[in-house]
Amino acid sequence: MKLSAEEVRHIALLARLGISEEEVEKLRNQLSHILENMEILSQLDTEGLSPTTQSIALENIYRLDEPSPSLPVEDVLSNAPNQEDNCFKVNAVLE
């Protein structure tokens, strides 16, 4: 099964990843090749098996809801590409 260029563009859109036309073609080939190697899994009957989401099976870790100091605002913003009035500044979300 080979992915279409349309499918590659759709996946990139879902990931909000910009890709060039050259990358579309390259990814189409590489992803198709990788996915072919995954077809081996369809040989396995996994009917009725539970999925394992992580390996050590800890569940529902609780802690007391006690306030404790957070990082200072200036530290949190120290890597911000753009900021104003102690906030991250972003492009308009609604236009």
């Binding site: 590659v8 996946i11 990139a12 879902l14 990931a15 909000r16 990843l17 910009g18 890709i19 060039s20 990358e23 990814l27 590489q30 992803l31 990788i34 996915l35």
Partner: peptide, 21 residues
């Protein structure tokens, strides 16, 4: 989209695409 396009290298993009798929 441009941030990710310019900021990530080829293997990282490949895995993001594979995982998203």
């Amino acid at each position: 989209e441009k941030t990710k396009q310019n900021g990530f290298g080829a293997e990282v993009k490949r895995r993001i695409m594979l995982g998203t798929y």
